[in-house]
Computed example of a mutant assay.
Amino acid sequence: MWTIPNILTSMRVLLIPVFVVVYFLDWKWAHQAGAFIFWFAAVTDWFDGYLARKLQQSTAFGAFLDPVADKLIVSAALLMIAHTYQDPWITVAAVLLTSREVFVASLREWMAEHGQRDSVKVSFVGKAKTMAQMLALIGLLSELEYFMGFPIYWVTLGKILLLIATVLSVWSMVVYLKAAWVYLVVEPKKHG
Rank of each mutant, 00 (worst) to 15 (best):
V155P: 01
A30G: 06
W89R: 13
N6Y: 10
Q56E: 15
L135S: 03
A165C: 08
V68G: 11
A63I: 08
V22P: 01
Y153F: 13
I90R: 00
D66E: 13
A77H: 01
E109F: 13
K121L: 03
G34I: 07
D118A: 14
K178M: 03
K28Y: 13
E113Q: 14
I164H: 03
D45I: 06
D26E: 11
T59Q: 11
S75R: 02
W89D: 05
P151M: 03
T166V: 10
L141M: 15
I37D: 00
L107V: 08
V43I: 14
Q86K: 13
G34S: 09
L72T: 04
M1L: 13
V104D: 02
K28M: 08
D48L: 06
L161M: 14
L168P: 00
W39D: 02
I73G: 00
G149W: 01
V170I: 13
I7W: 06
S99P: 02
Y146I: 00
H83Q: 15
E101Q: 12
S58W: 10
K159I: 12
L55M: 10
V185K: 14
G115K: 10
A77E: 00
W29A: 12
L97G: 02
A112M: 06
A128V: 08
L25K: 09
A82R: 13
K127L: 08
L51T: 01
I4S: 08
D48F: 03
W2D: 11
I73L: 14
L8P: 02
K190N: 11
D118W: 00
V186S: 10
G126L: 05
A165H: 07
V175R: 12
F150I: 08
W171P: 05
L162Q: 01
W46A: 12
W2L: 14
L161H: 06
K54T: 11
V20R: 01
K54L: 12
P151Y: 04
R117V: 06
Y23G: 01
S169V: 08
F24Y: 15
D45Q: 07
E145R: 12
V20A: 12
Y176V: 09
Q116K: 15
L140H: 10
K159A: 12
F150S: 05
N6T: 08
K190E: 14
S119F: 07
S10W: 05
K178Y: 02
V92M: 10
G49I: 04
A69L: 09
A33G: 02
